[in-house]
Simulated assay, not measured.
Amino acid sequence: MQTTDTVLMIEPVAFGYNAQTAENNYFQVNSENSETQEKALQEFKNFVEKLRSKGITVITVKDTLEPHKPDSIFPNNWVSFGSDGKAFLYPMFAPNRRDERRPEILEAVENAGYDIKQIEDISNSENEGKYLEGTGSMIFDHTNKIAYGSVSLRLDEGLFRKFCAENGYEPVVFHSYQNAGEERLPIYHTNVMMCVADRFVVICLDCIDDEIEREKVQEVIKSSGKQLIEISEDQLQNFAGNMLQVHNSDGKTFLVMSQTAYHSLTAEQIAQIEKYSEIIYADLNTIEVNGGGSARCMLAEVFLPKA
């Protein structure tokens, strides 16, 4: 299935601006102050409540104060949970994000009634300076066994192709860029510029500067039978690409995004999305500004079989 009804979320205890990730995450702005953690926690709790109110299962695990993990609120980068019972642990660019890979989080998922049959730890490529940051860097079309990946310091092309070959996905490799000051620089994660849902794809094609790559991506999306809903670079800067489709216990689908993303969309884009899914949005402003990630980054999908 393309979507799951269960997500893992990590409750922040020391959220803040991470200078290590800011090296190549141009969405981050350091506005950290004494209220940042408190505001981020409130945004987190409100978001969890919204998801649960729609019948979506949310497994929450509280972060730990030591070691300091300012980005722990974004678990989808270091772990993913497959329908075959595999849990993948991914290589992370920022050294202080590697501490987020905590065994007790996997135990909490199992204690919630899910069966982890095997743990595939591919994080040792960090020693070679090669990274593949989970479903931040790889966007999966599960039904068509396609994986989209925008090359950056957070997605090593060789690792991406190897992962796809070993797990039965066809890789679609391209390069995407954003304006950062006066420069045109690589987008750090594929999931800020595109979202694959069951019957549609939201994507910023304008950030794929190479015409041949752009046409190839369009062609793959169209051949997969999904409607292409295009967003602008300005909307991308407002996290409109950072969305995730989920379903609830009744099988109804929802497209999850932030309030910032929702308010950046046009009435026509909202109508296109609502043909397929109800929209859930939450105020995540503190998390977005300081963390440089949004709604999708906060959700690690759990496709695991029930124990």
Rank of each mutant, 00 (worst) to 15 (best):
A267G: 06
H263R: 14
A240W: 00
A271L: 06
A261W: 00
G293D: 11
V246M: 13
S249D: 04
L265A: 11
M243C: 15
N290L: 05
A282D: 04
I279H: 03
N248M: 01
Q272W: 14
E288F: 04
K275W: 09
T260V: 08
D250S: 15
E274I: 05
A240Q: 02
K252Y: 02
A267C: 07
N248P: 06
Y276S: 13
D250T: 05
I279Q: 08
T253D: 06
G241Q: 14
Q272L: 14
N248T: 09
I270T: 15
E288Y: 03
S277K: 07
E288A: 11
E274R: 08
Q269K: 12
T286Y: 10
E274N: 10
I279T: 04
Y276M: 05
E288T: 06
A271H: 13
L244T: 11
N285S: 15
E268T: 13
A271R: 13
T253Y: 04
I273Y: 02
T266I: 04
D283S: 12
I270E: 14
G292L: 13
Q272F: 13
I287F: 12
V289M: 13
N238W: 03
I279N: 05
Y276E: 13
Q269G: 11
F239G: 05
N290D: 14
L255Q: 02
I273R: 01
N248F: 03
I279M: 11
Q245S: 12
G291Q: 01
E288L: 09
Y281H: 15
N285H: 08
K252T: 07
I280G: 07
K275D: 14
N290K: 08
A271F: 09
V289E: 10
G241E: 11
N285D: 11
D250W: 01
G291A: 00
N238A: 15
E278Q: 14
L244W: 01
V246L: 15
Q269E: 15
T286L: 13
N290S: 06
S277Y: 09
D250A: 09
N285Q: 12
M257S: 05
D250H: 04
G251D: 04
A282P: 04
L244V: 12
Y262W: 12
L244Q: 09
Y276C: 05
E268V: 09
Q269L: 09
E274S: 03
N290V: 05
M257F: 11
S264Q: 15
Q269Y: 09
I270H: 06
A261V: 02
A261M: 04
D250G: 03
Y281P: 02
V256H: 08
G293V: 14
Y262E: 07
I273N: 01
K252S: 14
Y276L: 03
N242V: 10
I273Q: 05
A261D: 02
T253V: 06
D283T: 05
D283L: 03
E278I: 04
Q259K: 07
T253A: 08
D283W: 11
Q259C: 01
A282I: 07
S264H: 12
I270L: 13
A240P: 02
L284R: 06
A267H: 09
E278R: 08
F239V: 10
H247G: 01
A267I: 10
A240K: 00
V246K: 06
M257Y: 05
V246S: 02
G241P: 08
T260N: 10
V256T: 04
F254R: 00
L265Q: 02
D250E: 11
